[in-house]
Design a protein around this nucleic acid. Structure first.
Length: 510
RNA sequence: GGCCCGUUCGUCUAAGGGCUAGGACACCACCCUUUCACGGUGGUGAUACGGGUUCGAAUCCCGUACGGGCUACCA
């Protein structure tokens, strides 16, 4: 039991990396780090027809953004390579043939057309999807139905063929899932899955077992959608390497969208992203939005994903990655699927926006919004003050654009309706006088500005409250934002005076 | 259809036989605030249903219903 903890994430590089995938990575990573183990990323690219250029790079970019660096992978190296299954192609066939020798697998020569014909022929209302299983395999063209001579002849003449596992026609097979407990299957209901494809590549079923063994994986975590194929993998372990060598498994609950399983396509429909980062399909050129581009901080993204199906047993909800490593345990992972709640996701980001160091938020903002770069001329000191003032009003990094706009440009629209009805010549006089005082103010800071403002109001016998809203609207254009005098402070004398003057004139002319 | 997994407030969840089923998000009200937000206080709101087992069940068992996943030479 002192076996070194080694876990793996095994994505197929076919497109964007979605929420559920990242959470699987996260749980793998947390488990590995918690137990001082290794986190391996293995690329499952055994289906060359689904090869998508750039997808592999993209996955690693996502992991990097999330701060979940693998210990071993195509990019990180390691002693158990190659980490791309397409590069391991040559080693799978021997295992499949070993199974044939043992009588646990067989060659099958059925063409795709023949398979289709079989499904059509045996399809009934009772059985809408006939399976290549113990009830049907004797009616197909394979090494079970053909004579040895025929099989040898077909093989030596290079006839395309696959190797299928031969599942027993009776008996049960079971295992203990770390999350679900005992799970068992009736083997007679499991079909003879293809192990080795006609192109010589293994299917997932063979590859996952062989590679988990060769890479000495101690714990295998994957999505619940894999549970139905577990009996095939169990059988393979049993027949190839022995059950004792098998990793401990945990099938993670699914993350659901509003209508069931999150589909990569439906991102736009849901109103929230499904991918970690923007993914542009190289063929169609279509881009599907990611959480990063939507304005999420990686800390928040990780945090919210961790809490989707797991908790530490206390009421704590805000965790840094380090805290998660400390607190995580697979036993506390919920077994039921979780519907993704975008409102709560935004709350997590909001919380991280409030607690993350200012400088880091500014970096995140800069690297994210080119449009704000030109405004960087303000200097980092001013930026820190601005971010400190508006951060608690923002849920997403993108919110900063609107929340800080008035610092950099004259408000695009001004809510005149909120001042006009109560505007008076007295107020006009007040602001005219204020302009003079502000212009000659020695120290331009929030406290002095407020002091000066209130003194003048008292002198002119107007309640400051009557004047604060007009001032705010003059400066920011609407009823929002942090304290007015803080804003005026940052805006500076010239701009503040300009905005007050502009509006005072405009209001008096109406 | 078959197989597998699941079912506590709208959502994420706590409570793994024993006090008025707890928290968070969202929502509502009030307070704070001379704007918005933050914050504070309070509120609405859940054990799918039916049987057992037990002194006692959200918790254990069975059934039903509902939800989800799988059912490719895709992963």
């Amino acid at each position: 039991m002192s076996k070194k903890v080694r876990v793996r994430f095994a994505p197929s590089p076919t497109g964007g990396l979605h929420l559920g995938g990242v959470r699987t990575v996260l749980y793998n990573y947390l488990f590995a780090k918690k137990h001082g183990g290794d986190f391996i990323v293995r690329i499952e690219d055994t289906d060359q027809s689904r090869y998508v250029p750039g997808a592999e790079e993209y996955i690693f970019d996502c992991l990097r953004w999330c701060g979940l660096e693998p210990d071993e992978s195509v990019q990180h190296g390691g002693a158990f390579g190659p980490y791309r299954q397409s590069e391991r192609k040559s080693l799978y066939r021997a295992y499949a043939e070993k199974l044939i020798t043992q009588g646990d697998a067989y060659y099958a020569f059925d063409t795709p057309a023949e398979l289709e014909a079989m499904r059509k022929q045996y399809k009934t209302d009772q059985n809408p999807s006939p399976q290549y299983d113990h009830t049907l395999r004797l009616r197909m063209r394979n090494s079970l139905t053909l004579s040895a001579e025929e099989v040898n002849q077909l093989l030596s003449s290079g006839t395309p063929h696959v190797i299928r596992i031969q599942m027993p026609g009776s008996g049960t097979i079971a295992f203990t899932d770390m999350i679900r407990g005992d799970v068992s299957f009736d083997m007679s209901t499991v079909d003879d899955k293809v192990l080795l494809k006609a192109d010589g590549m293994p299917t997932y079923h063979l590859a996952v077992v062989v590679d988990d063994h060769l890479m000495q994986i101690s714990h295998a975590f994957r999505g619940e959608e894999w549970l139905p194929s577990a009996p095939v993998h169990l059988r393979l372990w049993e027949k190839l390497f022995g059950r004792d060598a098998m990793p401990q498994w945990a099938h993670l609950p699914l993350i659901l969208g509003p209508n069931g399983k999150l589909s990569k396509r439906d991102g736009a429909k849901y109103g929230f992203p499904v991918f970690a980062m923007n993914w542009t399909d190289p063929k169609s050129g279509e881009t599907i939005e990611g959480f990063r581009e939507r304005g999420f901080l990686p800390e928040a993204f990780i945090n919210l994903l961790a809490m989707l199906g797991w908790n530490d047993g206390t009421e704590k909800e805000l965790f840094s990655l380090e805290e998660l490593v400390q607190a995580f345990s697979m036993e506390r992972v919920h077994s039921a699927g979780a519907k993704f709640d975008y409102e709560k996701a935004k709350w997590f980001n909001h919380e991280w926006l409030r607690r993350k160091p200012l400088e880091e938020i500014i970096i995140a903002l800069r690297s994210q919004f080119g449009s704000l770069d030109s405004l960087g001329s303000l200097g980092s000191l001013k930026w820190e003050r601005i971010v400190a003032l508006v951060r608690e009003r923002c849920h997403l990094l993108t919110d900063f654009v609107e929340e800080t706009r008035y610092f950099f440009e004259y408000p695009k629209s001004v809510d005149m309706a909120s001042i006009q009805p109560k505007w008076s010549s007295e107020k006009a006089a007040f602001f005219s006088a204020l302009l003079v005082r502000y212009d000659s103010l020695a120290d331009w800071n929030a406290a002095a500005l407020e002091e000066c403002f209130k003194t003048l109001a008292t002198e002119q016998s107007i309640k400051p409250g009557e004047l604060m809203l007009p001032l705010r609207i003059m400066l920011v254009g609407g009823k929002f934002g942090p304290g007015v005098f803080d804003i005026a402070d940052i805006l500076g004398k010239v701009e503040t005076i300009r905005r007050i003057e502009l509006l005072t004139v405009q209001l008096s002319n109406n």
